[in-house]
Nucleic acid binder design. Structure first.
Lengths: 211, 211
DNA sequence: GAAGAATTTTGGACTGGAAACAAAAAAGTG
DNA sequence: CACTTTTTTGTTTCCAGTCCAAAATTCTTC
């Protein structure tokens, strides 16, 4: 029952000012979340049914879908947690005085690390980002705003071409991570994710820099 | 009942040398395929159920899943048809003496055209390419080998960097199409697909060329 | 072309995700 | 405590997809 990764933190802390109803909601949501992620890690995302999660979290199936409108939405919370960790790592590096290009590389390395570590959860997670249902794609994008982390880094480098908007370049880099991670997990799961990602970043950055 | 696009061609022509059983199989498969694509175009992919297709094609639901293990598999046949058309267009241009860089641009333009025209079918189609189930992703990739069209074009240009394999660059370009098309359809469906794709290609090609 | 073998179709049962909804339970309020 | 509002529950429904056994079709051989 020991997990390779530490159990994800609760999303929100209970607050004394909240009503009983609000507190119970938060506790229930946290319970569902914790239980779901644990089951996903133990048995795989596909093998875990909504009924499993509901039963283990001591709520009805209907309630589970009250809190998370679809199974992947639980994963989205986990993705938000991962991305916010990435953000923290970068901020730390910034305190240490790293320049933007180095931070970008650091971000990429960290992304590779987490991709390798969470190999089973990353595919269904990233898959949400490109859901053909725009509402779901948007929800995923807002939960995991990787481009929003990359954007300020690009703005700081001063080496970026100016005939394409920074937003677009950041989005391209974020999507490059996405497709590389998916390609890796589907076709070359035995290679180190780090190598694949490094090559992809080289390509896309060379396109992003001024000539 | 008139469609904006001509009805997709039959996948295979009946062959006199085949047994009755084989011929019936082909005819049934073609009927299912034609009917399904038509329903997808008329009512949308999501709105069309397997039961709808089966009933309209005069087979049982079970038989439908005999021929196509999942609904998207029908779309894959359509995607194969689209990609083979792309291939033909490029070969035509080659006969006309166009150089590789121009052919690549032409390919991109053609891709933009078909993306715009088939806007409702492209998202579920491209989505298959990144299905977390590797078996399905592979099936999609083999049905629509866009990278295989791009690869020889890159080899002809002589301007491509040599520190990354051509295969990888071709794959990156193909995936760039994918993510751009998905981003377009989810977030900016009112912009012309052509503009979005053009900018994305510029970025990725500048990364692909020698400095 | 009839008999028997092989293959395919058919339709029903079943599982799981997701939506919808009415009834029950819990929490909030005066 | 009584009354309102919110939430949970459990059931129904729909759809994708799997499995299976019985029926139908095609093939083979005599």
């Amino acid at each position: 029952m020991t997990l390779s990764t530490p159990a994800p933190k609760p999303l929100l802390q209970d607050d004394l000012k909240l009503s009983l109803r609000e507190r119970q909601k938060i506790r229930r949501r946290n319970r569902i979340y914790q239980v779901a992620i644990q089951l996903f890690k133990e048995n795989g995302f596909d093998k875990t049914t909504a009924t499993d999660i509901a039963r283990t979290a001591h709520v009805s199936r209907g309630t589970f879908f009250n809190y998370y409108p679809y199974k992947e939405a639980v994963l989205l919370d986990y993705g938000a947690y991962i991305v916010s960790n990435l953000h923290d790592v970068i901020e730390e590096r910034r305190q240490e005085g790293l320049d933007a290009a180095a931070m970008l590389e650091e971000l990429w390395l960290e992304l590779a690390r987490v991709t390798q570590e969470e190999r089973d959860l990353i595919p269904p997670l990233t898959y949400e980002l490109i859901n053909p249902d725009p509402i779901r794609a948007k929800a995923a994008y807002e939960a995991m705003p990787l481009a929003k982390i990359i954007e300020p880094l690009l703005r700081e480098t001063h080496r970026i071409r100016d005939d394409v908007s920074i937003e677009r370049i950041a989005a391209t880099i974020a999507y490059t991570y996405l497709m590389t991670a998916l390609r890796w997990s589907a076709f070359h799961p035995n290679r180190p994710a780090k190598d694949e990602l490094k090559k992809a970043l080289t390509l896309v950055l060379d396109g992003a820099y001024k000539r």
